[in-house]
Structure formats: structure tokens, C-alpha cells
Simulated assay, not measured.
Amino acid sequence: MFINASGYYIPEERVDNQHFLELNGLTSEWIEQRTGIRTRSKAKPEENINTMSMEALKQALPDLSYDITEVDLIIQASYSPYDTVATGAHVVQREYNIAGAKALYLSSACSSFVNALEVVEGYFCMGKATKALILSADKNSAYYNETDPKSGHLWGDAAAAFFISKERMSEKDVEILEVVTQGLGHIGKGPEGVQLRPRDGGIMMPEGRDVFIQACTYMPKNALYLLENNGYTLNDLTYFIGHQANMRIMSNIAKQLELPEEKFLSNIEELGNTGSVSSALVYAQYAKSFKKGDVVCITVFGGGYSAGAALMKV
């Protein structure tokens, strides 16, 4: 599979740590020390995952080497739906008159984007699609409770769009060497680790310690698996992109793998935890700076639990 083009959208508003001192007594120093977050992105009331996905798509379009109507599979990947019936995939299909495409919504917590990559791979292997569009977005501010001292200060909003093809379409395409995902509902605190229950408290992380432990285990484990399975070592890895949940997780992984800081790409300090789009967002933000031959690994962990990773070669 190949990434043909990518784009992203980040809302303009930033909510700084001082905001939470007034709400629940958490100091800026406390938040930054434990999460690495200084500010987080926040969408406008009239924005949602569909509108944000559309803006991300528009940014990607100028780099697309074929007409968008050639897309035959559209997946919206998210855990914070705006409309659970007519999804962003259907909105984009209508907006661009992509008549021949399948359209669906996929949710697997913060691994949703990587799961979408694997679903695309499946459709390609079955011969049921050749060009796909993944719309990855979360509007956490639609569901969070900012007064929650455990997780109310974590969340940001954003979107990314990725065009994927079965065959190489141009010389600038980035090859996806392998994708792996796991359902991990049977381990640790499983389904109770992170929750989003719209009528029962919104988005919460009651088992943060367990989430931390499992993320520090599975994110590096899956990255190492993909590298070894494709004939690479850690020395060959140009960039490591982890789910942007907590900078302490990244620091822990860096120590485990003995990887230098410059190999880690991140945006959590400014944007907070943008959910299932976070790793895709980092990739899209840095995409134009990647060089030919770079090896990039995205690895994620999400509530439920779920995990996944994707290895790319530029």
C-alpha cells in the first residue's frame, strides 16, 4: 500500500494550563510535569469531526496525483462521533460525488486510524477496492468534563486525511510496509481503562496508571515487531511517532529502546491528546519534511484496550 497524499486540520483556539487551576485546582506545573502538555487545541462549537475532516481533506487534495472520484473506499476513523448515522465518510462522498465508493465509520479507541489502515489493506487484498480515503478526527471537547481532575485537562481536537492506494501512483508516494493491530480487551483493566459514555460522565480515564503501563508495553513491542519483520533494526528507524497521550510514555519508551530524542516526533505539548488522530496528525504535520529512504513507524495504544502500528518507507 502507498500513502498518496495527507493533510490535517487543527483548530485555532488553544486552552492553556492556567484554565484548569480555576476549574479543579491543578497547577500548570503539575499538569506539565505529568503529561508534557502546556496547551491543547479546541474546536469551535459549530465545528465537528465531519467539518474538521473536510478541512484536512482540502489540504491534502493539491498533492493528490489522481482525481478524488477514483476513490472507492472511504473510512472515517474516530471515537467521538458527530452523527452515528450519516458519518463524515458519507458527507465527503456527497460533497465530491464519489459515486462508486463504499463509505463506513470505524472506531477502536485511539488505535482507530491504524485499524483503518488495516481495514483498507483487507479491502485491497480482497480486490474490493484500489484507492481509499481515511478521515481521522476526534472532537474531544464535545464530550469531556474539564472539571474531572483525572483526565479533564488532557484533551485536544484535530483531524487528518490520508489518501491510500494499492499500487504506487507517483514517485512521491510513501510505501506502507506493514500494519499490525491487536484487540486487548482481555488484559489489565481492559474496557474500563478509558470510557466515553455520552450520558454518563462523557470521556474519562479512571484507570490512568494501567493505561500508562500497557501503553509503555505494547507501543514499543509492536514497533520492534514491525522493524524486525521487515529486516530493519532500531538503528534504521528515522522517526518514531507514538500516540500522543502523555510525554512520560514517550520518555519511558525512549529509555526502553535507547532511542535519541531527535527520533521522536510529537505535538502533545501544544495540542494535548487529540485522540485517535494524534499519531496520524503528527505524521501529516511532518510529511513534507521526510526524505527519500526515511523509515517511519507509527505505534499507538487505545482504551478498550487496543493497539497497533504501521511501518512506512519514504
Score class of each variant (00 low, 15 high):
residue 181 T to Q: 07
residue 200 D to L: 11
residue 177 L to F: 04
residue 206 P to E: 04
residue 199 R to I: 08
residue 211 V to Q: 01
residue 208 G to Q: 05
residue 176 I to R: 07
residue 190 G to A: 12
residue 202 G to Q: 02
residue 174 V to C: 05
residue 216 C to D: 06
residue 170 S to Y: 04
residue 210 D to L: 09
residue 226 L to G: 06
residue 206 P to M: 04
residue 225 Y to C: 08
residue 226 L to T: 09
residue 220 P to Y: 02
residue 204 M to Q: 15
residue 219 M to V: 08
residue 180 V to E: 06
residue 182 Q to L: 14
residue 224 L to S: 12
residue 177 L to K: 15
residue 173 D to R: 03
residue 170 S to L: 00
residue 190 G to T: 10
residue 197 R to Q: 15
residue 228 E to M: 04
residue 207 E to F: 04
residue 188 G to I: 04
residue 220 P to A: 01
residue 173 D to F: 04
residue 187 I to S: 05
residue 194 V to D: 01
residue 182 Q to F: 11
residue 192 E to P: 00
residue 176 I to M: 12
residue 217 T to N: 13
residue 182 Q to C: 12
residue 213 I to H: 00
residue 218 Y to A: 01
residue 170 S to G: 11
residue 224 L to Y: 10
residue 184 L to N: 08
residue 195 Q to C: 10
residue 184 L to R: 05
residue 174 V to I: 12
residue 184 L to A: 11
residue 182 Q to T: 06
residue 187 I to L: 15
residue 197 R to K: 15
residue 226 L to D: 10
residue 214 Q to K: 14
residue 173 D to E: 04
residue 174 V to Y: 04
residue 195 Q to L: 15
residue 212 F to G: 07
residue 190 G to M: 01
residue 204 M to A: 14
residue 225 Y to H: 14
residue 183 G to C: 07
residue 197 R to N: 15
residue 176 I to N: 07
residue 210 D to V: 10
residue 229 N to Q: 15
residue 228 E to Y: 02
residue 203 I to Q: 06
residue 208 G to N: 05
residue 201 G to T: 09
residue 216 C to I: 02
residue 214 Q to F: 11
residue 187 I to A: 07
residue 188 G to E: 03
residue 229 N to M: 06
residue 176 I to D: 08
residue 221 K to Q: 15
residue 212 F to T: 05
residue 215 A to Q: 08
residue 213 I to R: 00
residue 197 R to H: 15
residue 202 G to A: 03
residue 177 L to H: 08
residue 206 P to H: 00
residue 210 D to P: 08
residue 203 I to V: 14
residue 229 N to P: 01
residue 179 V to P: 00
residue 231 G to H: 13
residue 176 I to S: 08
residue 185 G to S: 05
residue 197 R to E: 15
residue 172 K to I: 05
residue 208 G to Y: 03
residue 186 H to A: 12
residue 194 V to S: 00
residue 192 E to S: 12
residue 192 E to A: 05
residue 211 V to R: 02
residue 187 I to P: 08
residue 180 V to G: 01
residue 175 E to W: 01
residue 212 F to Y: 14
residue 198 P to M: 09
residue 171 E to L: 04
residue 232 Y to R: 06
residue 218 Y to F: 11
residue 185 G to M: 08
residue 183 G to P: 00
residue 198 P to R: 07
residue 211 V to N: 00
residue 221 K to G: 07
residue 221 K to H: 11
residue 206 P to N: 06
residue 185 G to Q: 03
residue 231 G to S: 14
residue 215 A to C: 10
residue 232 Y to Q: 06
residue 230 N to F: 09
residue 195 Q to V: 13
residue 189 K to T: 15
residue 230 N to T: 06
residue 221 K to N: 13
residue 206 P to Q: 02
residue 181 T to P: 07
residue 193 G to K: 03
residue 226 L to E: 11
residue 232 Y to G: 06
residue 227 L to H: 01
residue 184 L to C: 10
residue 186 H to N: 12
residue 189 K to N: 12
residue 176 I to L: 13
residue 198 P to N: 10
residue 222 N to H: 14
residue 182 Q to N: 13
residue 170 S to D: 13
residue 231 G to W: 02
residue 220 P to L: 00
residue 192 E to L: 03
residue 193 G to H: 03
residue 183 G to L: 05
residue 226 L to I: 06
residue 172 K to G: 10
residue 231 G to Q: 12
residue 177 L to E: 14
residue 222 N to V: 01
residue 171 E to N: 14
residue 187 I to Y: 11
residue 218 Y to T: 01
residue 213 I to Q: 00
residue 210 D to S: 13
residue 219 M to C: 07
